[in-house]
């Protein structure tokens, strides 16, 4: 199994780990967004979505632990890449201009990533690790977004998430080697569309709830 360790710890191997876990998170985001959009149909719909989700029982637990593992890989590998890439140029340029390849997303990947980690921790504390025995999940959400500070924080976090996936999505395909003259233009469009869907889809919910509540 030495070969596997050698492969995964190589520069391309680390990128593969980032790409595969990243694609998993994109899938998760799609499912999460679809679920959350039930908020737009009111409390009954959202509470019943949550009830259905929790009726998965042990499957949900498996998914949660799986996500935690994926997150650990994505975060640790990402931080390693960040450190190694910083070290690869000990003396930076006095004057360096961009040539047009870099985008807002690509230039800020490690920073948006770290911000998202902070957000996810806050998010779990807000809605996951709370006592749900006496109340409904909708009530918890509505109570949170009655505070303007949470609306601002959540909307800001979704902008950060949109920037992160705008690069991450197409980059994952490039990394796994799926750069094809016929499909790459489409992948880049989907990448942008997905970023916008994440930004707007999740972003409008706190605003909607704070206004409706």
């Amino acid at each position: 199994m030495n070969w596997l360790a050698n492969t995964l710890t190589s520069s391309i191997g680390k990128k593969l780990l980032m790409a595969l876990t990243g694609i998993c998170f994109c899938t998760f985001l799609s499912v999460h967004l679809a679920g959350n959009l039930t908020l737009l149909s009111g409390s009954t719909m959202f509470n019943s979505y949550a009830a259905h989700l929790h009726s998965l029982g042990v499957l949900l637990k498996v998914a949660e632990w799986g996500m935690l593992l994926l997150a650990a890989i994505h975060i640790l590998t990402g931080l390693t890449l960040f450190y190694q890439n910083w070290r690869a140029r000990p003396q930076s340029y006095e004057l360096k201009k961009r040539a047009g390849g870099r985008t807002l997303g690509s230039a800020t990947m490690p920073y948006t990533g770290i911000l998202l980690l902070a957000f996810v921790i806050m998010h779990l504390l807000n809605f996951h690790f709370v006592d749900k025995s006496q109340t409904t999940i909708y009530a918890i959400v509505a109570a949170a977004f009655a505070k303007p500070i949470y609306v601002v924080l959540y909307v800001a976090a979704m902008i950060v998430a949109a920037i992160h996936v705008s690069h991450g999505f197409w980059s994952a395909f490039q990394t796994i080697g799926a750069n094809h003259p016929k499909y790459m233009p489409l992948i880049k469009i989907i990448s942008l569309a997905f970023a916008l869907a994440v930004g707007f889809g999740f972003g409008i919910l706190p605003i909607y709830i704070s206004m409706g509540a």
């Binding site: 190694q84 890439n85 690869a88 870099r102 990394t175």
Partner: peptide
């Protein structure tokens, strides 16, 4: 990797 180059993050500055 041994020579100490960084890891590609698909910035595409090289191609430009």
């Amino acid at each position: 990797d041994r020579q100490g180059f960084g890891n590609c993050t698909n910035e595409a500055e090289c191609e430009a």
